[in-house]
Computed example of a mutant assay.
Amino acid sequence: MEPLYNSDAEFGRVVFINDVHFCLADILELLFQSRAQGAHLTCAEDLVKWYGGPGFYDTWVARDIKGEKFLHEMHRLSKDDVTMVAQMRDRPFQVQCGWNGMAVIDAKVFGGDDGLRFRRSAEGECSASECSLFCNDMWKHGFNRLVMVPRVKLTYEIEIRNMIRRPLYFPADTPFNLPEVEKISFRPGPKKVACRPLNGVDSHNPDGPEVYVDL
């Protein structure tokens, strides 16, 4: 991020990619939806094996527009009806937070004297992922157009990647074949968001009780 922070050059979007299996079309689709939706953050969905089939992975970071954790089961990912209608139709929807293996962020989020930075939790703050804290900071600074794109599904295992590319899971309207863009009707965000803290030193999994923090 150093070139962006210290350069006079103008940047449009920053793309973050985790250690996932992906195709070029996945990146292009996120970039396309980022611009089409005027989003501040646009992310994929990342999957792992869950009871023999694909399941949603990053429940530690991802939060729906009501501030609640997503579930692992793809057919009941969220309790929010608007989210689930879009999910079942493979259309983008608004979230409070997401990262999920690949994220495209509008570069203006990082710019200016008050530009946001990734950080660790402050003393007394719920020790969430730096991605979660970044999303919370975005909302506090008015960057509230965060979008998840269910047609972009990424995996950490090639077995699951091959599974979701079968016709049963891979939609017929692959990237760039939609006749027009369906714009998201952005809603106000939640006043509180669920946080599962990582309190222990060198812990790899959240070890604290779930709490709700103010936005």
Rank of each mutant, 00 (worst) to 15 (best):
V104D: 09
I105G: 01
I105P: 03
I105L: 12
A107Q: 09
K108L: 08
K108T: 14
V109R: 06
V109G: 13
V109F: 04
F110Q: 04
F110A: 05
F110H: 04
G111P: 00
G111N: 03
G112T: 15
D113P: 10
D113L: 08
D114C: 09
D114M: 14
D114T: 15
D114Q: 09
L116N: 04
L116I: 06
R117G: 01
F118N: 10
F118K: 08
F118M: 11
F118P: 13
R119P: 06
R119K: 13
R120Q: 08
R120W: 00
S121D: 02
A122C: 06
A122K: 15
A122V: 05
A122P: 00
E123H: 14
E123N: 12
G124C: 08
G124L: 05
G124V: 05
G124N: 01
G124F: 06
E125Y: 00
E125C: 02
E125S: 04
C126D: 03
C126F: 04
C126E: 04
S127G: 04
S127L: 05
S127P: 10
A128D: 09
S129F: 06
S129I: 06
S129Y: 06
E130L: 10
E130C: 07
E130S: 14
C131G: 11
S132V: 05
S132I: 11
S132M: 15
S132C: 13
F134I: 13
C135F: 08
N136D: 04
N136M: 12
D137W: 01
D137K: 10
D137L: 13
D137I: 07
M138S: 08
M138C: 13
M138L: 11
M138Y: 02
W139M: 06
W139N: 12
W139G: 07
K140P: 01
K140F: 00
K140Q: 04
K140E: 02
K140L: 07
H141P: 00
G142Q: 03
F143R: 03
F143T: 02
F143Y: 15
F143N: 02
F143V: 03
F143P: 02
F143E: 02
N144Y: 01
N144H: 07
R145N: 02
R145S: 09
R145M: 00
L146E: 03
V147T: 15
V147R: 06
V147M: 10
V147S: 04
V147C: 05
V147N: 08
M148P: 00
M148L: 15
P150F: 07
P150C: 09
R151M: 11
R151K: 13
K153H: 12
K153D: 03
K153S: 13
L154G: 12
L154C: 05
T155D: 03
T155G: 03
T155R: 02
Y156W: 02
Y156E: 12
E157F: 10
I158M: 01
I158N: 09
I158D: 06
I158S: 11
E159P: 01
E159F: 03
I160R: 00
I160T: 15
R161G: 05
R161N: 12
N162V: 08
M163E: 11
M163F: 10
